[in-house]
Design a protein around this nucleic acid. Structure first.
Lengths: 213, 213
DNA sequence: GTCTATAGGCCGATAGAC
DNA sequence: GTCTATCGGCCTATAGAC
């Protein structure tokens, strides 16, 4: 269990005004994307002048990176704190991961969205590297958990651990990104309840759809 | 099998120059998003003047909608044509869907990306409705396929058909969106081969990870 | 640290010649 | 149908008073 805890330094020693700007910027960037939000809007929403923003942050890109950095720090820290390994049964650890991970995504939806957005359409550069590190770390952690479960005989050794990890993360992210649309479609039982979704996904992944059960 | 074939009229009666503009615009919008691409860039890339674009298309938004419409038409038509139902074994139909759907996504990656982008960050409006219709139709079609397979005893009746459909679409979309990053991560066998990915996902979904197999 | 004022540039969209 | 030239507006970023 190597601990490569690159700190992903957040804006911790910023004063109240700067923190406020960062907070507002994070929300707006998450909703509108980098190009879709102007410094004017952020200034207006934060109740400060445009020049004040440029006093606290080098440039629009600097502000964006600071907001993304904050979101990534939060996401990494929360996943680190979640006691996934607390359960004794390795199968329960997988079950717990599925629900915990989805809860983390839903807990701070705008931070999650900011990271997802950067992964999907961010230009190559500092921002994308940050977001990709969050993705890779999450992915690595869950892959490791699957391998442990395989070593203990709770998961078939024939299953590709990274594939199962990828499917689990994907199932959660896909639910997170499409939950609004899902709720509008008719006849979807799991749309409104993340906990129910997690449990049903676990059952399906565990036992498969094959047969007449 | 109700056939609600709303045509999603594409720019079929456009002349060569306009088609060219539409093609270029579709590519650039897919890569950069609506706000990330200017009419100047499209004009330059297409080899025409900016005024010419406004001659053929009412506005920037009109051009964007035409490009999105074209992508949606393609996506809907291809899914309609794919002979998913050709297999006799309902289990094979599910297997075929997984690989066919992923192939469709990868066949025209920019069109797929344009639709995905609109689903994720598009403002409420005509564009989002178009993209959501494509999503909903795909989702409905595959749900129906799962229900058929259940009726024939190939899939457990206890499985939630819409959940399985959602997981299958999600597994493919998540692979499509993250394939570049996936290829950069170490130790991922399925990253470079969509066919292998589809097959492995099918096996896992069919039999589950439970047990010592 | 916070503000007003403004520089300088690119934007979407239009006018009008050919 | 295609162009050049241009308009008014909004953008990021800076200057300088307080």
């Amino acid at each position: 269990m190597a601990k490569t805890s690159t700190p992903l330094i957040s804006g911790d020693k910023l004063n109240r005004a700067a923190q406020n700007i960062l907070e507002v910027a994070g929300q707006l960037f998450a909703q509108g994307g980098y190009d879709g939000v102007s410094i004017n809007e952020i200034a207006s929403e934060a109740g400060v002048s445009k020049a004040n923003i440029f006093h606290h942050f080098r440039s629009k890109e600097g502000l964006y990176l600071a907001a993304l950095n904050k979101a990534c720090s939060h996401s990494a820290r929360v996943l680190e704190d979640k006691p996934i390994d607390s359960a004794d049964d390795p199968s329960d650890r997988v079950r717990n991961f599925l629900s915990s991970h989805l809860e983390v995504l839903l807990e701070r939806p705008l931070a999650s969205r900011l990271i997802q957005r950067e992964l999907l359409d961010g230009a190559e550069g500092n921002g994308k590297q940050l977001a990709e590190k969050v993705f890779a770390d999450t992915f690595e952690k869950i892959t490791e958990m699957v391998r442990d479960a395989q070593a203990q005989g709770a998961i078939k050794s024939t299953v590709d651990a990274s594939l199962l990890a990828f499917l689990m993360v994907g199932a959660n992210v896909f639910f997170f990104e499409n939950r609004a649309l899902l709720a509008r479609l008719p006849g979807i039982d799991f749309a409104g309840s993340p906990a129910q979704y997690s449990e049903t996904v676990f059952e399906l992944l565990a036992h498969g759809f094959n047969g007449k059960g």
